[in-house]
Design a protein around this nucleic acid. Structure first.
Lengths: 195, 195
DNA sequence: TTGAAAAATTGACCGCGGTCAATAATAAAT
DNA sequence: ATTTATTATTGACCGCGGTCAATTTTTCAA
């Protein structure tokens, strides 16, 4: 039978997380250095890796939490009446994902539970996004000829797509919102009132 | 006035590329080490970086070339009659992109010309995919209520999406093809003959 | 042919993520 | 209180991508 976690362990872990958040607040996610974090937390380098599999595991945790809080918000929203309502609801989530190019890349890299290991925090938010969007979109006045699951899957694909274009040197004719609006209109309301 | 490129330079570059391809053929893209490449090419480490900005610049070159040859093939294809025809045409391209998880991540990371620098080889293939698909899809019997550009943009988004799902520990109920078929059917022929 | 500018190559060196055998701190058993 | 088993922490060390001042090779003009 496994022993209970030591209080010391929790403190160390909390100090590491706090130190990381401090560094990130000052210099951004990409600039975070494990050596800087352990220095501020007052522990040895090895301790970091006793608490987190690797550097990205900690970043996943922090970023995953931010995404989850956005999903909490979306989940509590009333039924969307149209595409602009959807975009309004999704933009804060987009804002989190585009805080840094590095963050977006990291999210993509972990969106599918790399390798065989357990499902990481970010992969979980992706699965949850699928569910939340599925439920939420089903409430709105959108096409019914396809399953809600397929509908939300498509929305997720477009979300990633427009963010990728946002970071692209080409494709600067339209804003992220405009591009997303066009895609969602065509996806959710084919042959509908939209342009 | 700049001097002409030395023959020696071209030879060195060719040897580096050949050595890299050799290593990749043996151990895969992710396992490629710059030190191994320069060893086989018989040059010093610094020489590598005199020829390529960084390790990924060389990988971009090699992968970009493979993608481009797939686009050449697609470009020469007759008009697609239906969704299965599209999938048949796209699967070899997908096959290139899923050779390794690492390759897919690298492709995504460079799909949008990271930073301000010039458009890299992979970013170019993405722009080209957009064009090629736009032209090609416009030849087929698909929805005409949206622009060909929007249509191909959506197809590209779905392509990336299903590959991401392919690498996902979750979502293993459907194969990549099935998922892509459902999405494309709903996207290209809304309310059409498909399920 | 020779001298000098330009270009290519070299390899010691650095930064940083990650490892691991040794050590210290803690909890349970006697 | 003392021993023992477990867990947490340490820091020297490694691998590998990338840098840069010094050196060699090439080109071209006089």
């Amino acid at each position: 039978m496994a022993r209970a976690v030591q209080k010391r362990t929790l403190e160390t872990r909390a100090r590491l997380i706090a130190a990381a958040q401090e560094v990130i607040a000052e210099a951004g996610y990409e600039a975070m250095r494990v050596e800087e974090v352990v220095l501020r937390a007052g522990v040895a380098k090895g301790t970091f890796f006793a608490h987190f599999r690797d550097k990205e595991a900690l970043l996943e945790l922090l970023i995953g939490a931010r995404i989850d809080s956005e999903l909490d918000r979306i989940e509590a929203l009333p039924a969307p009446a149209d595409v602009p309502a959807i975009i309004g609801a999704l933009m804060p989530l987009v804002a989190v994902m585009i805080t840094e190019r590095y963050v977006f890349d990291l999210i993509l890299r972990h969106s599918g539970a790399a390798g065989k290991a357990e499902i990481g925090p970010i992969a979980q938010t992706f699965a949850r996004t699928d569910q939340v969007l599925g439920m939420w979109l089903a409430l709105g006045p959108f096409r019914k000829d396809v399953t809600p699951a397929l509908l939300s899957s498509g929305v997720q694909a477009f979300l990633i797509h427009v963010i990728a274009l946002h970071f692209c040197a080409l494709h600067q004719k339209q804003t992220l919102q405009e591009m997303l609006a066009d895609l969602l209109q065509a996806w959710l309301l084919p042959g509908g009132t939209g342009a």
